[in-house]
Write a protein that binds this DNA or RNA. Structure first.
Lengths: 141, 141
DNA sequence: ACCTTACTGCGACAATGTCGCATTGTCAAG
DNA sequence: CTTGACAATGCGACATTGTCGCAGTAAGGT
């Protein structure tokens, strides 16, 4: 198991949550994924691994992980929400509209500065933001 | 009718599209809205005005407007896509997580510069991006 | 007035969640 | 190790948000 998955489990336990097979499997699926996963993708992975989880369970689990700050929700253009573990550094995503590949984009200092500037101008207190790029990846362009 | 709505109709006509009651009503609804509208909100407005439009028609219309570049799609945290007329300057949105108010945020030159820098670093050709702020508006903070 | 075809309504269906309720499984206290 | 509390699960019904095919309607040029 990856370090991020381990840390996530620790964080959960210290929040009154219990360690179940489904939960462990969901976290591991997210930890091993290269890109944010949708609920149905997570469900597919669990099924492939022989962990029979219900659809509702997966949704509830993903919601619980988000609430606990262990996972973050991202929305691209498709309808389904996607989830990734919150372990690493703050980053954004570049989504290829042709091959659907998702690559991480490290947070840019100027970007954050621009956000603070915007917040100051408008009196808006920013809690979080979304910033995603859509276009063609190096292979598809 | 607002100027933006008028311009949108002109743009449509010069694209082989026809001017129907439903189309006119959808465009007017978007033109008069203070914030991006979801399909069901648009439908609600049409019904209130006595323009009996079918759900499928509204969806098709919004899609057509997006394809024509007359409307743009934005996604906040909720599931439904939202639409606004593309008339004005490029901008982003600040969404209050408490009162749900949406205010426009003018595009920031630094933001765009950061985007170009990111694109250059990664070999990614950016076609469009999303940037939305979530937090507390001046009234709710 | 007529033709072409864009547009519409209807109804079925699909994808993505959400919820209540009875049952099961965790885990820590005893 | 047993047991009690309650977190978590499975099941099934339902809601929301779209999508699609098809037959009928109507916009707009000729």
């Amino acid at each position: 198991m990856k370090k991020t998955a381990h840390a996530a489990l620790e964080k959960l336990k210290s929040g009154g949550r219990r360690l179940t097979a489904a939960r462990r499997a969901v976290i591991e699926a997210l930890a091993e994924a290269e890109a944010p996963l949708s609920a149905s993708e997570v469900l597919g992975i669990l099924v492939k691994r022989g962990v029979g989880a219900d659809r509702a369970t997966v949704y509830r689990e993903l919601e619980a992980l988000s609430e606990a700050g262990i996972a973050v929700t991202v929305r691209f253009e498709s309808r389904a929400a996607r989830f990734e573990l919150a372990g690493g550094a703050h980053h954004h995503h570049a989504v290829c509209v042709k091959c659907e590949a998702v690559s991480d984009v490290e947070a840019d200092a100027e970007l954050e500065a621009a956000e603070r500037r915007i917040a100051r101008r408008s009196g808006f207190k920013v809690l979080r933001h979304s910033f995603e790029l859509f276009g063609l990846c190096a292979d598809c362009r």
